[in-house]
C-alpha cells in the first residue's frame, strides 16, 4: 500500500492534510490518533468508501477510488458499527457472504476462529455487542482477504476475548495477510503491530516500530533513587553511566529505577504537540 500526499477536504475544513504511508505486504500496521485526527476518513478512502480530494493512493496495486469487484474480492473490511442481517443466524449470514468471493474460507471454520460456535444458530440481533463485533470480524475475513482493514476492532471486548482476538490477528498475519488496524488502545498496538503511525490534525506526526516510535528508544531516561539526603530524580541520555557513577562507592542505592517513556507517554507527547 502506497499513499502520497493524501488530502480530504469537507468544504473549507481539511480533515486529512497530506498523509504519506507505506505498508508492506504481510505486516500489521497500526494507525493511532485521537478522535477527529482523520483516522477513519483515511481508512475509508483506502477502503474505497470515500473519495479523496488529492494525493496518490495505491492499494494492492490499484486506486481504491476506481477499483472494481476483483479488487474488492482481495480486501476485507471490518465495519465499526453495523446492525444489518438482524434476522439471519450467524451461520446463515457467513454462508451468504461467502458466496460473493472466488475463494472463500469455510464458514464453519470462520465461526470457530472467532469463537462463535455456541452462537452459530442464533439470530444476529440477539448477539451481545462483543459477539456482534466478532461476527463483523468473521464477515471481514470470510473472503480470505490479502489485506484486512480493522477499524477499532476490540472496542467493547472484555480482556479475555481481546486476548483471543489478538491471537486470531497474529494467526491471520502468519498466513500472510496484511493488516491495517486503527485503535485507541496503545497496548494493542504494542502487542500486535510491526509498525505504527500516529495521526494528529490530519498529518502523520510519527512513524516507526512500537519500540522506536518518536525516538522512544533513544529518549532521555529518568533515573530515580534515594540516599541519606532524600529522593533524587535525574533525566539523562546515558543512564548506565549515571548508575555506574552513583554506585561507585559500592553502597546500595535505595529505590533505584531507570525508566524510559512508555508508548503511551510518547504518544501523548506526540499528539500534544499538535494540539
Amino acid at each position: 500500500m502506497e499513499v502520497r500526499g493524501l488530502r480530504k477536504d469537507y468544504g473549507a475544513s481539511t480533515v486529512v492534510a497530506g498523509v504519506d504511508l507505506d505498508i508492506r505486504q504481510g505486516e500489521i500496521f497500526a494507525l493511532l490518533g485521537p478522535n477527529g485526527a482523520g483516522k477513519t476518513t483515511t481508512v475509508e478512502i483506502l477502503e474505497g468508501h470515500r473519495r479523496r480530494t488529492g494525493g496518490d493512493v495505491r492499494v494492492l496495486g490499484e486506486d481504491p477510488g476506481r477499483a472494481g469487484g476483483a479488487w474488492r474480492a482481495r480486501i476485507g473490511i471490518v465495519l465499526q458499527s453495523a446492525s444489518d442481517s438482524a434476522e439471519l443466524t450467524v451461520a446463515e449470514s457467513l454462508r451468504h457472504f461467502a458466496r460473493y468471493y472466488p475463494d472463500p474460507r469455510d464458514p464453519e471454520e470462520v465461526v470457530r476462529l472467532v469463537g462463535l460456535e455456541e452462537k452459530r444458530n442464533a439470530r444476529v440481533q440477539t448477539l451481545s455487542g462483543g459477539q456482534r463485533r466478532r461476527l463483523d470480524v468473521a464477515l471481514g475475513i470470510i473472503g480470505r482477504p490479502e489485506l484486512l482493514f480493522l477499524d477499532e476492532p476490540t472496542t467493547g471486548f472484555d480482556p479475555e476475548v481481546r486476548r483471543k482476538f489478538w491471537t486470531l490477528i497474529e494467526l491471520l498475519a502468519a498466513e500472510g495477510t496484511t493488516i491495517l488496524l486503527t485503535t485507541h488502545y496503545l497496548d494493542e498496538a504494542e502487542a500486535l503491530a510491526d509498525r505504527v503511525a500516529v495521526l494528529a490534525g490530519g498529518r502523520v506526526v510519527a512513524e516507526g516500530t512500537p519500540a522506536t516510535l518518536g525516538g522512544r528508544a533513544n529518549a532521555e531516561a529518568t533515573v530515580r533513587w534515594t540516599d541519606a539526603r532524600g529522593a533524587h530524580e535525574r533525566r539523562t541520555p546515558r543512564p548506565t553511566s549515571l548508575v555506574n557513577e552513583l554506585s561507585a562507592g559500592g553502597g546500595e542505592l535505595g529505590g533505584l529505577t531507570v525508566t524510559r517513556p512508555s508508548l503511551e507517554d510518547t504518544y501523548l507527547d506526540l499528539i500534544g504537540e499538535r494540539r
Binding site: 474505497g48 469487484g69 476483483a70 465495519l79 458499527s81 453495523a82 444489518d84 472466488p102
Partner: peptide, 17 residues
C-alpha cells in the same frame, strides 16, 4: 434502512456487484 443500518456499506466493501 439498508443505508442506515450498514447493509449497503458492508456490501460496498465486498465484490458483490
Amino acid at each position: 434502512l439498508d443505508r442506515e443500518n450498514g447493509t449497503l456499506k458492508r456490501l460496498r466493501g465486498t465484490p458483490m456487484p
